[in-house]
Nucleic acid binder design. Sequence first.
RNA 1: GACUUGGUAGCUCAGUUGGUAGAGCACCUCCCUUUUAAGGAGGUGGUCCUGGGUUCGAGCCCCAGCCAAGUCACCA
Length: 564
Amino acid sequence: MQLSELELIRREKRTQLQNLGINPYPADLYPVTTTSEEIKQDFSEGKKVVIAGRLMSRRIQGKASFAELQDAKGRIQVYFNRDEICTGEDKSKYNDIYKKLLDIGDFIGIEGELFTTQVGEKTVLVKDFTLLSKALKPLPQPRVDSEGKVHDAFTDPEQRYRQRYADLVVNPHVKEVFIKRTKLFNAMRTFFNERGYFEVETPILQPIPGGAAARPFVTHHNSLDIPLYMRIANELYLKRLIVGGFDGVYEFSKNFRNEGMDRTHNPEFTAMEIYVAYKDYNWMMEFCENLLEYCAKEVNGTTQATFGEHTVDFKAPYPRVTMAQAIQKFTGFDITDKTEEEIRTAAENLGVAVDDTMGKGKLIDEIFGEKCEGNFIQPTFITDYPKEMSPLCKEHRDNPELTERFELMVCGKEIANAYSELNDPIDQRERFEAQLKLAEKGDDEAMFIDHDFLRALEYGMPPTSGMGIGMDRLIMYLTNNPSIQEVLFFPQMKPEKKAVAMTEEEKAVFKILKADTGDKMELEVLKKSSGLSNKKWDKAIKGLTKNKLAKVEKTEDGLFVTAV
RNA sequence: GACUUGGUAGCUCAGUUGGUAGAGCACCUCCCUUUUAAGGAGGUGGUCCUGGGUUCGAGCCCCAGCCAAGUCACCA
């Protein structure tokens, strides 16, 4: 890896510090007493403080200098004055160590006293400082001017996602998104725990990937010599726990789906699933709207959230619309009591793409997805989905073609999905078998039959309502980010291409050179044995000498190439 | 998977018809003791994404590829 000039300079400074007897990476605890935030909130002139963080900007004016120190809570101005730091004859700590050997990005600790500058800035007067960690790579340095305009912003998404650590250091608004993300998780936990529901963990490596229709990642367990799948959902395991006697269980689950990536799909994503015994989906709707109202307030301090052009209000309650009502409203077509053929014709008339493999449920789902879904901006429950689309959901108490299912739509997208859970083991087996038929027809997302899950149901599961929430999508709404990558610390990226150390020609030449005894050859001999054209030879040998892998020397006996 | 746009210094970006690769910030040297995006003077810094091709000559034109973003398709 070729180092830039700036990186070489910093490495040299590291060595110089060591030569001065200063460890650039000391092991000692640093006795921090406060943070930048506390200093500003609880400011009193002359107060002694010990703080630590990264040096983020410097304005050096000879024997004095202002700088900014950034810690986990923000930034605080610090004032380095030569006479304060170097009270004796030796002024090198200021002149050499501070001014010459520290860089922006270095972690330092500061002992000092608070004061206010003539322009009114709360500042730490540095009495002494300690290098805590030397940064060898220069950070991007965005700056904000007095009009609030950002200069040199670090904005390239590729670099920001690949080097999230740097993104977080220099872009405070990015850090804010992740703070809100954690607030959301904490808020949900609090809401559930206060109601007595129990947080659990279930397997991520599963012999049968169940609970959703999706293509799984496959891996292999060596000593068992069996395939294992990364989980696509945790539903079936949580229901086993309801069978086992828990009243309410929930889990934040990292799920993995081996499907396409775009700005709303990452191969791994986080869902929250909760199952509560003796409840139905009507109860769950109320629970859901109360939950989201609570979470929105905890995260943003208000139930309103801005998402692009929309302002969404999470204040409960939310409208409840059946799928049939939604379709009637946006297409004028009433699907109630219609045959499959009538619905197919209606879909075709509406310009919805259909094919012969689609059953009644799929057709209805297509019409809804195409014509209705995008219209629900404010949180809205869509209820009573076709049975065919919901193999884990209980049949509707009033209509055997439907299920007791709802999805919560926000800004035209689903963020929650819930059922009155199917607990009839015979019905469940038949639904799995119907899925198996779909798989045989080539649907690679059809569900597997999970016999152990059926066995669990046979022991009896109480009536239960369950709900899943897409955490990534929800936090996108709460932080106004249209891309899932902005709400994941480390979104999946294609691997960075490794810089090729040597070209094929260079490798060939180098191999011949190394094979020769003494690693030294006459240039003409080497050139001839490489068999390269003039142009390619020239490029190869220049490449090798440039990378200091070979050296060309002229002696009395002629031109020689030496391996270095 | 298709299409569109982009990839030039540590960061943000210019780069004319194909003719010696530029700016601001950062960095280095010197001066400067209460400043605040940017004090003054001077200087250093490049795999122009990669590989081919056209050409006397390619950052620029052509072909292929890599990576990213966006739109669409597919998918929860």
